[in-house]
Simulated scan of single mutants.
Amino acid sequence: MSTIDWNDFMKVELRVGRVQRARVFAEARKPAYVLEIDFGPEVGVRRSSAQLTALYTPEELVGRLVVGVVNFPDKQIGPLMSQCLVTGFHDEQGRVALCVPDRDVPPGTRLL
Rank of each mutant, 00 (worst) to 15 (best):
S2A: 06
T3I: 05
D5I: 00
N7I: 01
N7V: 02
N7R: 03
F9W: 07
M10I: 01
K11V: 04
V12Y: 03
V12A: 08
V12R: 00
E13Y: 07
E13W: 09
E13A: 09
V19S: 05
V19C: 05
Q20D: 07
R21M: 11
V24P: 04
F25S: 07
A26V: 11
A26C: 06
A26H: 09
E27I: 12
A28R: 10
R29V: 09
R29Q: 13
K30W: 00
P31W: 04
P31T: 01
Y33T: 09
V34K: 07
V34T: 12
V34Y: 05
V34I: 15
L35Y: 06
I37N: 08
D38M: 02
D38T: 06
D38I: 03
F39Y: 14
F39P: 12
G40N: 11
G40I: 12
E42C: 11
E42V: 13
V43C: 13
V43H: 11
G44S: 13
V45Q: 08
V45H: 09
V45W: 10
R46F: 09
S48K: 09
S48G: 13
S49D: 12
S49G: 14
A50H: 05
Q51E: 15
Q51Y: 08
L52E: 12
L52T: 09
T53K: 11
T53C: 15
T53R: 13
A54I: 00
A54S: 03
L55V: 06
L55F: 03
Y56Q: 07
Y56L: 07
T57V: 03
T57M: 03
T57P: 06
P58V: 00
P58M: 02
E59C: 02
V62S: 08
G63T: 13
G63L: 13
R64I: 05
L65M: 14
L65V: 12
V66Q: 08
V66I: 14
V67A: 10
G68S: 11
G68H: 10
V69W: 01
V69H: 01
V69M: 09
V70F: 04
V70C: 13
V70W: 02
V70T: 14
N71P: 11
N71E: 11
N71M: 06
F72L: 15
K75S: 03
Q76L: 15
Q76T: 14
I77D: 03
G78E: 12
G78P: 06
P79T: 15
P79Y: 12
P79K: 15
M81Q: 14
M81I: 15
S82L: 08
Q83I: 08
Q83Y: 04
C84F: 07
C84W: 07
L85C: 09
L85T: 03
V86F: 04
V86Q: 08
T87N: 10
F89Y: 05
F89H: 01
D91I: 04
E92K: 10
Q93P: 01
Q93H: 10
Q93T: 11
G94L: 00
G94R: 01
G94T: 00
R95L: 00
R95E: 08
V96P: 02
A97S: 12
L98T: 05
L98Q: 04
V100W: 01
V100R: 05
P101N: 05
R103E: 15
R103D: 10
D104W: 14
V105H: 09
P106T: 07
P106A: 14
P107F: 04
P107L: 05
P107C: 05
G108Y: 11
T109K: 05
T109S: 14
L111P: 05
L112A: 15
L112T: 13
